[in-house]
Structure formats: structure tokens, C-alpha cells
């Protein structure tokens, strides 16, 4: 690795490290009560302890159970949304009438913050996993629908003509031109949607979970004034969020749109 390639990583690492050091310092001089503002070292220690088998007094591998529950809700909700919303978006992109009728509704739902609908969903479906799932699906659907429709409309008509001239049927055009042609938009939409789904699942768990989930854990630890556990949960939320948004999609983009030279993102 030459100097140019490792320098950005070095800066990223140093920047986070210095922030942690600053946090530690503030906690040690006790500007704020230490119970409310625990040092990073204590938070990380608590995180390790909660992730491990435990001391036998409580459930073992507690943090992993919370993470498992959250990821389950996230992935189920996200994949359901991806499947249904991509289809709706594709149909909207292909059919102008469907687009004209659905667009106002989609736009309306897009601007409503996900959290605003949580109380109603709880009233309808009660507390538990079902409600969390529904909130995740609602949170991640609309960006996918929007971008899928926009992606279909971005395909040059002459590209469709080229396929028709080669003898392609409507279904063949859908599979060989429309769907791959929409890919850059679909990927951007799913990236956006996964970010939203992640925020939605944590928010939903705070209000609607009854036993497991990182969001639930953070909120539950509040009752015992366990700020170290709360911050440990927040760190986990941040780390997983980082992985989902930058690592996972970077890989998917690398094997598709970046290879094709059709990426919508400039900083790849």
C-alpha cells in the first residue's frame, strides 16, 4: 500500500480515536455525572460483557440475542419491501396511467416521517414482532418504488427499439433490457431504503418490542439507569448501520454498476 491509499484510512481512524479520547477525558473530569455520562472504556467493557456468555445470573449472550432479533426484523422487512416495492415501481415506470395515479400517494407517504405512524400501527397490531416488521416495510418501501419507476423511465426508448428489432417479446424486453437498465436506480433506491429500514427498526423496537431487539434494549436499560448498556446499544446500532450502508452496498455496486460503468455515484 502506498502513501496515497492508506492516508484516508489513517485520517478516518485517527479522527474516531481522537473523538473517543475526548469523550473519555470529559467523563473522567466529571463535567457531567458519571452515571449519566460513562467513559468510553466502561461502555466498551459493558459491551464485551453483554456480548459474552455472562456470569450466569442473567441470560447468556444477551447482546447477540438483541442483535439477532433486530437483524431478523430488519432483513425480513427489507426483503419483503424490496420484492413488493420493486415490482410496484417497475409497473409504474412501464405504465404511464398507473404512474400518474400512484405518484401523488407515494409522494405523500414519502414525506411522512416513519415514526409518526408508529402509534397507529401499535393500536392496530399490538406490541411485538409483527408491528416492528410492518413499520420496517413501510419505512423502506417508498424510496424503492420511487427510484424503480424513475429508473425505468430513464431507459432510452431507442434501447427498447433495438431489442424489439432483434425480435424480443415484451417479457424478454422486461428481463433483458428494462430490469438490468433500471439496476443503477434500483441499487440507489435499495441503499436509501436500507438506511431508512435500519432507522425504522430501532425506532419501532423502542415502542413496540416486548423482549428483544437493540432498540428495546436501549429503552429498557433506561429503567435501571444502566447508561453504560444504553451507550453500548447505541455503539452497536452505529456499527451495524455503518456496515449496512457502506460495506454491503459497495460490494453489490462493485460487481454490477461500477463494472458496467453506469454507476450513479461519483465517489466510488
Amino acid at each position: 500500500m502506498d502513501k496515497k491509499t492508506y492516508k484516508p484510512y489513517l485520517i478516518t481512524f485517527s479522527s474516531i480515536f481522537l473523538f473517543g479520547l475526548f469523550w473519555e477525558f470529559i467523563a473522567y473530569v466529571e463535567v457531567v455525572d458519571r452515571v449519566l455520562f460513562p467513559p468510553i472504556s466502561a461502555i466498551l467493557e459493558r459491551l464485551v460483557e453483554m456480548t459474552g456468555p455472562g456470569d450466569g445470573t442473567g441470560p447468556s449472550y444477551l447482546m447477540l440475542r438483541h442483535i439477532g432479533s433486530t437483524l431478523f426484523a430488519l432483513l425480513c422487512g427489507f426483503f419483503l419491501a424490496a420484492l413488493v416495492s420493486s415490482s410496484i415501481g417497475l409497473v409504474m415506470g412501464i405504465n404511464a396511467t398507473v404512474y400518474q395515479w400512484l405518484r401523488p400517494i407515494i409522494t405523500m407517504f414519502m414525506v411522512i416521517p416513519n415514526i409518526a405512524t408508529v402509534p397507529v400501527i401499535i393500536l392496530w397490531f399490538g406490541l411485538g414482532m409483527k408491528t416492528v416488521l410492518i413499520i420496517v416495510v413501510m419505512g423502506s418501501s417508498f424510496p424503492i418504488i420511487y427510484t424503480a419507476a424513475a429508473g425505468v423511465q430513464s431507459i432510452p426508448i431507442k434501447m427498447i427499439w433495438a431489442a424489439q428489432t432483434a425480435g424480443a417479446s415484451r417479457w424478454q424486453i422486461l428481463w433483458t433490457v428494462v430490469i438490468p437498465g433500471t439496476m443503477p436506480y434500483l441499487l440507489a433506491g435499495h441503499k436509501l431504503a436500507l438506511g431508512r429500514a435500519w432507522r425504522a427498526v430501532i425506532a419501532a423496537e423502542i415502542f413496540a418490542s416486548t423482549a428483544y431487539g437493540i432498540g428495546f434494549m436501549i429503552f429498557d436499560a433506561r429503567t435501571f439507569f444502566d447508561t453504560e448498556a444504553m451507550f453500548a446499544g447505541i455503539v452497536v446500532v452505529g456499527l451495524i448501520g455503518l456496515f449496512l450502508e457502506s460495506v454491503l452496498f459497495k460490494y453489490v455496486e462493485k460487481i454490477t454498476v461500477v463494472r458496467w460503468g453506469t454507476s450513479t455515484a461519483k465517489d466510488i
Binding site: K158, M159, Q164, T165, A166, P180, G181, W260, G261, T262
Partner: peptide, 17 residues
Amino acid sequence: PGPNRGIVFQEYVLFPW
């Protein structure tokens, strides 16, 4: 349109993928 004709456009319109 049909496969007894082939078409070439000014903008190439190849399938980039």
C-alpha cells in the same frame, strides 16, 4: 419492428451491462 431488420442509431445505445 421485427428481426428481418437491424437498426443502428447515432447514439449506439448498446446494453451497458
